Simulated assay, not measured.
Amino acid sequence: MAEPDRRTANGVREGWREGWPDEGGARRVLWGLRAYGFIVAMWVRSTMAYRTSFVIMLVVSFATTFLDFAAIVIMFSHVKELGGFSLPEVAFLYGTSNVAFGLADLLLGQAERIGRRVRDGTLDVLLTRPVPVLSQVAADRFALRRLGRICQGGLVLGWSLVRLDLDWSVGKVLLTVSMVLCGGAIFGCVFVLGGAFQFWAQDATEVQSAFTYGGTTMLQYPPTVFAEDLVRGVTFVVPLAFVNWLPALRVLGRDDPLGLPGWVDFAAPAVALLCCAVTGLAWRAGLRAYRSTGS
């Protein structure tokens, strides 16, 4: 018996075809990841067709992000400490923030383009394909040149680890790795949440950038240079402090300016999982609220 032509309220056919996995199950998630990989591979092959152009763009991306750290170095040529933090300590914050953000920007940064698709109606095309919309949006025009930010942040992080005089332990090593991975997940959630918000706002890219690009710039500096209300906001409202501030204070042996319990420094994985759950609900709500252009 042929499968019925199911349509949404706005007339767009849902992506139901032979081989479409069960909704809500692990198979759907795996299928979404597989489809994401296929689309990414396509864009990588396209990028590698022009290797010289790719290398130039990679170098430009590396150099552009390096200017941010150059500004910090120039700042330290006039002062010995910034908010009580030395240059290697600030470099540690800078490196963890940029690597985490770079991973999120590379893997999910295209979610900020969803507003344009909503406005011009091209989102309808994505809805007709038997692939999760988020996989298509995130992998669309996959920009391999964004590896430049990750490489630059990784070099600064490596330099800071060499210069820091710390008593390293297995716990501190795991906490540092967790900062990069969980921080990337948190930033990725912010990208997707911003994209979900654009289903209603349609043009909120600048608002989203304030929390993504603005957030990573803020996390490059010690929390002690900011007002306590701002630190509370990025801890309890938009949990960017869990990207690197709170765990980094534990690694560096610094006191928490908010006086939070010690276990909070290890809460980044739980916060990342909670953010993923909230993001998934918000994204599904945004898709349900979408109204086609009718074209």
Rank of each mutant, 00 (worst) to 15 (best):
G158F: 08
G158C: 10
G158D: 00
W159P: 00
W159Y: 12
S160C: 01
S160V: 05
S160A: 15
S160E: 04
L161N: 01
L161F: 02
V162N: 08
L164D: 05
D165L: 01
D165I: 00
L166I: 10
L166K: 06
L166T: 03
D167N: 11
D167M: 11
D167P: 00
D167W: 08
D167E: 13
D167S: 14
W168I: 05
W168C: 05
S169G: 14
S169Q: 11
S169Y: 13
V170F: 15
G171K: 12
G171Y: 13
G171V: 10
G171E: 15
K172M: 12
K172G: 08
K172Y: 13
K172E: 08
K172V: 07
V173L: 15
V173Y: 14
L174I: 10
L174H: 09
L175V: 02
T176S: 15
T176Q: 05
T176F: 09
T176P: 00
T176V: 13
T176G: 13
V177G: 14
V177F: 13
M179A: 15
M179Q: 14
M179S: 12
V180W: 03
V180N: 09
V180P: 04
L181Q: 07
L181G: 08
C182A: 15
C182D: 10
G183K: 01
G183M: 03
G183V: 02
G183C: 06
G183S: 06
G184I: 01
G184T: 05
G184K: 02
G184Q: 04
G184R: 04
A185K: 06
A185L: 15
I186G: 05
I186P: 01
I186K: 05
I186H: 03
F187P: 02
G188W: 04
C189T: 07
V190A: 15
F191W: 11
F191R: 07
F191K: 05
F191L: 08
F191V: 04
V192N: 03
V192S: 08
V192L: 08
V192M: 08
V192F: 06
V192P: 01
L193S: 07
G194D: 00
G194H: 02
G195D: 03
G195A: 07
A196L: 06
A196F: 09
A196D: 06
A196C: 06
A196S: 13
F197I: 00
F197P: 00
F199E: 00
F199P: 00
F199Y: 10
F199M: 07
F199N: 02
F199A: 04
W200F: 12
W200I: 09
W200K: 12
W200Y: 12
A201P: 00
D203G: 01
D203A: 13
D203F: 05
A204I: 02
A204E: 01
T205K: 13
T205F: 14
T205P: 00
V207F: 14
V207H: 11
V207A: 15
S209M: 09
S209K: 10
S209Q: 10
A210L: 14
A210G: 14
F211A: 12
F211P: 01
F211R: 02
F211I: 07
T212N: 11
T212P: 01
T212H: 04
T212Q: 08
T212G: 04
Y213W: 14
Y213I: 09
Y213Q: 08
G214D: 03
G214H: 08
G215R: 03
T216G: 01
T217H: 13
T217R: 13
T217K: 14
T217C: 12
T217S: 15
T217L: 15
M218D: 01
M218C: 12
M218E: 06
M218N: 03
L219A: 13
L219T: 05
